[in-house]
Design a protein around this nucleic acid. Structure first.
Lengths: 267, 267
DNA sequence: ACGCGAGTTTGGTATATACAAACCTATATG
DNA sequence: CATATAGGTTTGTATATACCAAACTCGCGT
């Protein structure tokens, strides 16, 4: 549905776009059947069939019985991506340490095509809401929904932020979700001055998080790290200064790790 | 190089095969440049360019500077696959428990297109050789190279095994690697009777493992679980009976979990 | 036995693909 | 400073190929 034809003509391979749409549909529909997929995309049965056969053959999808699902090859590829991403290697240990220290969920995320993708996560012993976090790993999040995401947005050029938001629109998840550009910009300014972002039940009711951006040696944003916990446990001074302190410290160490290791920015 | 044209005509989308080859090349070459890729595949520069543009646009790859690498979208997709695979959900806890009990590496793997893919792994506190295991997660292994793989092979029809081996050939990794069909078949028979497989430095010198297959409710193989440790620590009675016992127990529990949960076999 | 829906195969044609060659744009070289 | 060279991008075009439609097969419920 998204015409990317910016009038000119950056040539594209249509079959890849179609395949991509099918993969996305399969991921989205969980375990669709052949007809489910035919209904989802506007392509003839025969063609869909050929695509699915090909994708299965290449290991991108797998058919179990009459249901399709993404193939195991993607696990391998995903793992590859992680291991090649510097921020993952540089940050893994810190994430685990922070999770242990706080006892809560800690996420290491990066921005990808205007959304937030979780590269690594670790749960402390008090961490809750497994299901939510499971789902979060599976699907990218809007940057303005999360603390880590907002921390990254704050580092972007405001024009770029405007651009993103225009393309994505504001999806309201709770009554506290940011739903207009002014509020967002005001908050981004604040984040920039205080050095960290908070998410106060803006994505899930009863959940708060504190996040901060991780910048590479060339001052570009590489990703972000965040701590998430139920509002009951994350409040007062702990929420307003202790946790931010810990999060920023961790981010700082990761930045140093990045600096010393061979460096490349993701994206 | 793999002609899948069984003369007949299962129609395929050629562009997807090409894209797949490019992705594989990118994964294999780590962070290739444009020209690297042109050399790797036999396609004209212009065409490669169009493919890469499309793949980047769809999030399958990312260009950082002049280097290409697999895109972050694949992380998300891979995570999706894991979470949808019953054996992952059913086995995760047991893998962790086993890792804690033994203090060594524990792997949960499945078969995919005749190779072994790691779905989940956990390292006990004595586990070593991180680099090796990192690499293992990234690239599928030959089934006859590992304990878990052989355990799965033992459950297959022998004709299917012959088929696989004919297609893959025997790649010798150490002087103990199995390199002929008779030896393999003999060992598979033994595995079937004793209920578990061992890998005695057949893949990496100084490394042993013990693995066993996990079968679903419909008696098909879903995957396998294995413990890996240095030969020095894995020997004598511990190697020959204690560990096998633990591994089989874990597999058994996972099978029960599979039985009780909603069930689907991967692949 | 029959009909029906889900899934697969086939023919023909519009078109997307892939080559080649021209074209840029930086970086090395005389 | 001019020129050469390599890395990368764009364009025209013949042809392979992807796509639709319609025919077909298979399995299931009645």
């Amino acid at each position: 549905m998204d015409a990317d034809d910016s009038s000119g003509s950056p040539r594209r391979i249509k079959s890849i776009q179609t395949a991509s749409a099918l993969l996305e549909a399969i991921q989205y529909l969980e375990t669709p059947t052949f007809t489910d997929l035919c209904n989802e995309v506007e392509i003839s049965k025969g063609t869909v069939h050929t695509y699915l056969e090909t994708l299965e053959n290449e290991g991108f999808i797998a058919k179990s019985g009459s249901e399709y699902q993404l193939g195991v090859r993607l696990v391998t590829m995903g793992e590859s991506v992680r291991n090649q991403t510097d921020i993952y290697r540089a940050g893994q240990d810190e994430v685990e340490k922070l999770a242990e220290k706080t006892g809560e969920w800690v996420h290491l995320t990066v921005e990808c095509q205007g959304q937030e993708v979780t590269l690594y996560e670790s749960s402390g012993d008090r961490a809750i809401a497994m299901d939510y976090h499971l789902r979060m790993r599976e699907s990218p999040q809007y940057l303005y929904h999360t603390a880590a995401g907002k921390a990254m947005l704050a580092c972007f050029d405001r024009d770029r932020v405007r651009d993103l938001v225009n393309r994505q629109g504001f999806v309201q998840r709770t009554e506290k979700t940011i739903t207009d550009l002014e509020t967002l910009f005001a908050e981004l300014d604040q984040i920039q001055t205080q050095g960290y972002a908070v998410n106060d039940e803006e994505e899930v009711r009863g959940m708060r998080s504190v996040g901060t951006a991780i910048t590479g040696p060339d001052a570009t944003v590489c990703g972000a790290i965040s701590v998430t916990a139920p509002t009951s446990r994350l409040s007062g001074d702990y929420f307003e200064s202790e946790i931010p302190e810990l999060v920023m410290e961790a981010a700082n160490i990761i930045e140093v790790n990045l600096e010393t290791a061979g460096v490349e920015k993701p994206r």
